[in-house]
Design a binder for these strands. Structure first.
Lengths: 346, 346
DNA sequence: TTGTACGCGTTATCAT
DNA sequence: ATGATAACGCGTACAA
């Protein structure tokens, strides 16, 4: 089928191509009558301009992009919402791009920058071990928002910006909370083992608290989630906690390094006939809704998602405007004690 | 900054533009040596082809798109995963596009078809009250996958395809289950009131069951969720259930028309000192993970999400291949009785 | 196997 | 206010 183009519209209206273009793009230099007439024909024919051609020609798109790796993460939804709002306020348009787990987010970014003439990028999720060489090709400002992400340590810090929570420290806080309640055998449900991954950082915080309290680190209490299903899922928390229980290893508390895992862990404990927190305390991490509504409500580390998102987008626009060149901001998180943690048994 | 183009590469390599193009696109007619040389230069310079220009030229992209309205819906994640897999098997590429709640999904589709030379579209989420006129401009096959969606009733059914669950019937099944347990005062947590919205359909199923059992419909037991926060969220379930409780209206069961709402409702009941299901039964709808892991596990209507997704993508490819022209498929859902529903009190 | 030249649909520039 | 025309960056006939 012969796609209808701006030329056809021009012909049908008996005007020049540029006049049609003016009508479409709300240009000032056009007679209202002509414009109306053209718009009528466009409506009637159902003409839709080709974005590829537009992007090709357009110098300036006034748009930024968010590259999201792991759309499942409920924390991202909130962040994206905030980013969308702020972007609109600045009269920018936002390109939301979902990156497959097997894709390289920098490659995707590189493509997108050219394709859409982006002015900036926000990376949400993913691990960042990109070659400095490659990332130097990214000629627009970009920010790593490290919620569910590790900050790239192998790249010069002046090259990029980041917004993060100190995962190691906050994880320490949570573990210390449990130890403070008298728990000596604290199991941890942990995900990725890659260096600098959040999973790893949270594990280190756990070890920090242990060693500070003079508690020997027990490898058997560190349970890695299944690798072949989604890492931070309730199912994985359930499976991993179940294995822990069946292992016979003694513990009075479980620190699940994500609320999603904590929910699954709770279920496993309950099914095994254990009470929470009377028999076993359960702690999560992230501060997502489900922990608040679960029964029992789950003690967690709440990341200030909205504030982080606001800061992220503000920083990006500051960099775009040349008011800043880069910045690395660490946000404090908050320990929220709810019903799932209590004094150690006995 | 002067963006680097295919011309620059050609010049630097001392070859013609088309040769570079051949190298990039894995064309057969090219000397491996030449190709390697070119690829090296591309790597070194960090050249990335401009997708807009490519799309503009390319006649055939072998790609389809999924337009998702309401990325928050956990059901969508599963569907998308399946669709991605099947699409890859067919050697097609998939464009995943998030549609804002205020955007018209057909407009977005129209744009995208031109921009990316799509061969087909799957609509996930959104309400479909589009003018037939507009939708007739959509010249590629499209399917409405009605999970969290209402099928467009105002458009000729030969124009589109749909994959759905009979919301009214399944809702009837759940309500009948509760009535069968002896419940006479069943409250319902319901969302949208637009005609043919899933919220409305599920409400009708509820009324069907009531009238069949000879139970008078009590308007006061129909609780609409807050309109200004996300409809199908735990928070909304919590707030709405709390209001119901505080209203003093008598009920022994709550049918939450989404599992997310059910979770919030459970929390509200528990906080009010009620036991589930001993004092009040709670039923959900959708069959998402959280219901399975909640305490108590929530009785629900499980939509066969994966099967539906598989059928959707298969149907789309059938239509693209011309093996079919359109089809409307209704999937049976499954009542899963778990811990949150039991005999009526007293 | 390789290079040249045209056109994809649009916007921007320059006349008019 | 309007129209002709040159890019935008790439793919692809076609010629070599």
């Amino acid at each position: 089928m012969p796609e209808i183009t701006i030329k056809d519209i021009a012909k049908q209206c008996g005007v020049g191509i540029s006049t049609v273009s003016r009508a479409i793009n709300n240009h000032p230099d056009i007679n209202p009558e002509t414009k109306n007439m053209i718009m009528d024909v466009i409506k009637a024919t159902g003409f839709v301009p080709n974005n590829s051609a537009r992007n090709l020609k357009r110098i300036d798109a006034k748009s930024i992009a968010v590259l999201v790796k792991g759309i499942t993460n409920p924390l991202f939804s909130d962040m994206i919402k905030v980013i969308e709002e702020e972007t609109q306020k600045k009269k920018y348009s936002l390109v939301l791009k979902h990156v497959e787990y097997y894709e390289d987010e920098v490659d995707v970014a590189l493509e997108l920058v050219k394709e859409k003439r982006l002015r900036g990028i926000i990376f949400l999720g993913g691990y960042f071990f990109h070659s400095q060489e490659k990332i130097e090709n990214l000629t627009v400002p970009y920010i790593f928002s490290t919620i569910g992400t590790a900050v790239p340590e192998n790249i010069s810090r002046v090259l990029y910006s980041s917004i993060a929570v100190d995962d190691r420290k906050e994880s320490y806080v949570m573990t210390a909370h449990l130890i403070g309640l008298g728990h000596r055998n604290v199991a941890i449900l942990s995900a990725e083992s890659e260096i600098n991954s959040i999973g790893q950082l949270r594990l280190e915080g756990y070890r920090d608290a242990l060693s500070e309290a003079g508690i020997a680190f027990n490898e058997k209490l560190v349970r890695r989630v299944e690798d072949d299903i989604e890492h931070y899922s309730m199912e994985n928390g359930y499976i991993t906690a179940k294995k822990l229980i069946e292992s016979g290893e003694k513990f009075t508390a479980i620190f699940a390094t994500a609320d999603m895992l904590a929910v699954g862990a709770c279920r496993a404990l309950l099914e095994a006939g254990m009470r929470i927190p009377e028999d076993v305390s359960v702690a999560g991490y992230d501060g997502i809704d489900v922990g608040k509504y679960y029964n029992p409500a789950i003690t967690t580390i709440k990341q200030p998602v909205k504030e982080m998102a606001k800061t992220t987008i503000k920083l990006l626009f500051d960099i775009i405007a040349g008011r800043k060149s880069y910045e690395h901001i660490v946000f404090p998180a908050e320990l929220i004690v709810r019903e799932s943690t209590g004094p150690a048994k006995g």
